[in-house]
Design a protein around this nucleic acid. Structure first.
Lengths: 109, 109
DNA sequence: CAATCATGCCTAAGTTACTTATACATCGCG
DNA sequence: CGCGATGTATAAGTAACTTAGGCATGATTG
């Protein structure tokens, strides 16, 4: 038992891609940003975050580079690739399509 | 490889509960109804449907009864229990909360 | 009248993306 | 100098799918 969680399965990739599309960030900052923007409704655990980042990197949708953070430590900054931007667009469209569809069902009478 | 699918993981229970909350239905009809109401955006495969129904029944959220369909054949009609109605309410609230949160993230600038 | 499609229920094996738990390192602070 | 915050990472377990079957009956059609 684990549900209900503070995640909708399969949306993490979308959230990550969207977040770094605005500005490259390191993993920890990506998670914090998503949590903050969602008003703490979404919680990104590290066990979900890092595997997702590696997944996205392996797909060629993001690339990593070690840089220094504001706080003066080394961290892996991720940015979108061109393929990643395309993927983001697709995942956004897919999300809109499916979440609207669910809306139709749950508001049906 | 299987994604992207025509499902958002974890929402099938909600869709089923909502659908039979309007009127008891048999499995096959539930799937057809969801597909129709969603304007074919959602596709419910039988491999997802029947395990979900058994899951929900085991949780005590729905109960089954063999009855005759319009087309004159025997089918298992499912209806919501009281606990199921409560569960539906919770899952609706959870969906609203999380899908809104995702909306915040994907519309952030 | 036989074949095929639609209706209806079901299960097994494989995959994916989570959860939970753990490990490790550095920095700032009291 | 210990502890919380910052930062990356992996392993084991699990839930809910996908894919691919199987089975039975009623209706349609060539």
């Amino acid at each position: 038992m684990s549900r209900p969680s503070d995640m909708i399965q399969g949306t993490l990739d979308l959230l990550i891609l969207k977040t770094i599309s605005i500005e490259p960030k390191h993993g920890w900052a990506i998670a914090k940003r998503i949590e903050q923007v969602s008003e703490e409704a979404l919680q990104i655990t590290q066990g979900a975050l890092y595997p997702a980042l590696h997944r996205l990197e392996q797909q060629g949708w993001i690339t990593a580079e070690w840089r220094e953070t504001d706080t003066g430590r080394e961290a892996k900054f991720y940015r979108l690739t061109k393929a990643g931007a395309k993927q983001l667009k697709q995942e956004l469209a897919q999300w809109e399509r499916l979440s609207n569809a669910i809306g139709l069902v749950i508001r049906a009478v």
